[in-house]
Design a protein around this nucleic acid. Structure first.
Lengths: 230, 230
DNA sequence: ACAAAAGTGTTAGAATTACACCCATGA
DNA sequence: TCATGGGTGTAATTCTAACACTTTTGT
């Protein structure tokens, strides 16, 4: 197929900042580029938007194609349109933030054989294009969003201990939180409920597992709530 | 000029939701469409992104071309990419929110002779394309942003009374605010300072004019503040 | 018995909310 | 002198933040 236009129009891509939580650290998914420009450099997963798919659809497709990921949370972040952000031609990219539990997803080799890997966000390599700026903005969004929406649960297993949840929040907001205040606040919301399961085989008092109450969350969302989580 | 691509790529436009404050009401700028589709319908100002301009640049250009507006505040909102949002062909649009003081800008006739006019946001006409949804999302952004960033000042004259400022906030957040509490809170921030001017010729006690202290705002912004305005 | 993290309340201080009257001005 | 909105303080309540010891479990 070839299409002809009366004037130049920018190419359109999507790029995804996929965050995970592993070994008590926030990690980000990167893809090693196989071709020029920036061959051998790490970059965000993404690619061109097809003419017959939505933006969200393109983001989901790229994540499946490039890493075999099926995502639990996907949110549009910002659209980047600097003139020189791609050295080949004008490319505008719609950036997304996605959250995933790395333990539940084996990273599959990309369909075009490029490597995909998780990196600690604080020790990530230099990135291709303007992806550095995109990751920074995604971190900002994550940090501000986590304060009033319970998005963090997408990063954890279905059941989790309160300490795990607190560590996740601490990693995202970048400071230590008070254990008792954190538990009071998070439990008062009623969004997470205790199960009757406990940790097993740990050399200490076993922690109770909790689970996210999606029904209650949906009910709250209806009535236009204001969370103020931490 | 004609450009040929190996595969279809969506067309890219910008659309602007321009808010103003007039007669104690929040108003939005609309343009009457001259051509199909939606000829005669009102729509958001906007148009195609040229290959040699940034997204912000395209938004600014369209506002000048279509309404003669030079804007004080412009912020990217969201990118809309539903497949059928334009009946002619696939068009992805990057939406912007802009704030302007209508009293300081005479609306100029559009370069292609379409009408531009302000409408009370609550009594706006039915809009072309998916512009209804874009305006709704812009209102949400305005309402949430105004709570922690002092963006409202772009909508007022350089000097304003505290009652004018309070009315503006009330219109945006959609509820009455307590006069004493509002003044305490807004003055404690130190972002607005009294002038020695007062209203003249009003049949009541004259109100003092205040002005926004941009220097202080920039200083606060540096140190990563958290406003919590109302 | 020891090491290691789980679990649990109280109190002081800060912030928020509710609330009513006198004042200045022009007509 | 009257009508109109401008301007001002306090007290009750709620929310936030700081803080330490006992419990459970496996080795």
């Amino acid at each position: 197929m070839a299409f002809t236009y009366a004037f130049a129009r920018p190419a359109l891509t999507v790029d995804c900042v996929v965050f995970g939580f592993r070994d008590q650290q926030l990690v980000v998914l990167l893809i090693e580029r196989g071709e020029q420009p920036f061959a051998g450099k790490w970059a965000l997963p993404g690619g061109f938007v097809h003419d017959d798919e939505t933006l969200d659809g393109a983001a989901e497709r790229e994540l499946v194609e490039e890493a075999g990921l099926r995502i639990s949370y996907l949110e549009q972040l910002y659209t980047f349109g600097a003139l020189d952000r791609d050295p080949r031609e004008r490319v505008v990219t719609v950036a997304y933030v996605a959250l995933v539990n790395p333990a539940q997803h084996e990273l599959r080799a990309s369909t075009d054989a490029r490597r995909a890997a998780w990196f600690d966000v604080r020790e990530r390599p230099a990135l291709a294009f303007d992806h550095e700026a995109i990751v920074e903005q995604a971190l900002e969004r994550l940090r501000s969003k986590v304060r009033y929406r319970p998005i963090g649960f997408g990063l954890l297993d279905d059941t989790f201990t309160l300490t795990e949840l607190q560590k996740l929040y601490e990693v995202i907001v970048g400071r230590a939180l008070d254990k008792r205040n954190f538990r009071k606040k998070i439990l008062k919301l009623g969004l997470i409920v205790p199960t009757d399961q406990k940790e097993r085989g740990v050399p200490r008092r076993a922690a109770r597992f909790f689970t996210f109450d999606r029904g209650r969350y949906d009910a709250l969302t209806e009535s236009g709530f204001d969370l103020e989580l931490i």
